[in-house]
């Protein structure tokens, strides 16, 4: 089997450096601290009430899972934003293009390399979130669901980073742009929902709130709240935003959101490929045609 050469090169370079090791140690140390502080708080509470509250372990699990999500979405754009713009800055992108490698192979190679980093990070963090498996409360399948939600979020944020990197900016500027995209994704998706609220009175639904299906924070919060027994987070959220959705939809919200996010990620990946094609002058066929017409005139 032929491995994508870009993925192979990225892994080779990564294996030489200490970046991944530092990242794993750093993130795990912080998660460990959160876990320990949670346990200490639970122990203090147990001492006061003289009754063991095993539910507190689920709260710690939820806290660690959300902390992991925050780390991942913070790290992911940085992992990919410099991958294409860095190649462009070091003038190696045109060499890759000259090899006849397709733009899709270049993009997928870069994406796969950063997904590998995130996957390794996630696997290394599993010991921090498996505590409820010992005391009960969360099943292995549910934990797998959390991992999938986190990976979907990672794919989405990495795709955004990659897209920012293909837009022809320097590494610094594309990284800044990737974080702007991230802010728009995490907070900007709430904006239409809030804006639609005044128009959704008298029994009209605020359908703009449905945009939140693309928000990975909402998806991961839904997974965690469901697992720790905090009720249905999407049901509460949509009710607050004046959107009356069916029980069937709410019952399948998590897989539906993950599919929507995957679809959105695919669209961003295709946009990145097209954007890379722009570097060749191939993007914007209509624009070229207009120029051509202008010359002919």
């Amino acid at each position: 089997m032929n491995i994508n050469p870009i993925l192979k090169r990225e892994l080779r370079v990564q294996s030489r450096g200490h970046g991944l090791l530092v990242l794993i140690c750093g993130v795990n140390a912080i998660l460990f601290m959160i876990g320990v502080l949670g346990c200490l708080a639970a122990a203090a509470r147990t001492e006061q009430s003289l009754a063991a509250d095993y539910g507190v372990l689920l709260d710690i699990y939820g806290l660690v899972a959300m902390a992991l999500f925050v780390f991942m979405v913070m790290i992911c754009p940085a992992l990919t934003s410099g991958s294409i713009s860095g190649e462009r800055q070091s003038k190696t992108l045109e060499l890759l293009m000259a090899t006849g490698m397709s733009d899709m192979s270049i993009i997928l190679g870069k994406l796969a390399a950063s997904l590998y980093t995130v996957a390794v990070l996630l696997i290394s963090c599993i010991p921090s979130i498996v505590l409820p498996l010992v005391y009960g409360g969360v099943s292995l399948l549910e934990m797998l669901q959390l991992v999938m939600a986190l990976m979907t979020a990672a794919l989405m944020t990495q795709s955004l980073g990659l897209f920012a990197g293909t837009l022809g900016f320097s590494v610094q500027r594309s990284t800044a742009l990737a974080y702007i995209f991230l802010v728009v994704l995490l907070f900007g998706t709430f904006l239409p929902a809030f804006m639609g609220m005044p128009f959704s009175v008298y029994g009209r639904d605020n359908w703009l709130a449905l945009l939140l299906i693309l928000n990975p924070a909402v998806t991961v919060l839904s997974v965690v709240s469901m697992q720790v027994g905090g009720g249905s987070f999407p049901a509460e959220l949509f009710a607050r935003l004046n959107l009356d959705v069916s029980e069937v939809f709410l019952g399948h919200y998590i897989p539906a959101a993950m599919i929507a996010e995957l679809f959105f990620s695919l669209m961003i990946i295709f946009a990145s490929v097209k954007s890379l094609d722009m570097a060749r002058g191939g993007f914007g066929y209509l624009l070229r045609k207009r120029k051509k017409e202008g010359i002919e005139k």
């Binding site: 003038k91 190696t92 045109e94 090899t99 397709s102």
Partner: peptide, 21 residues
């Protein structure tokens, strides 16, 4: 055509910058 894999492989290119990893 730009990005044409087969035709592109007929050409070797040395840019003005080294393009080195």
């Amino acid at each position: 055509r730009s990005g044409d894999q087969k035709q592109g492989r007929l050409i070797g290119y040395v840019p003005d910058s080294f393009g080195i990893y």
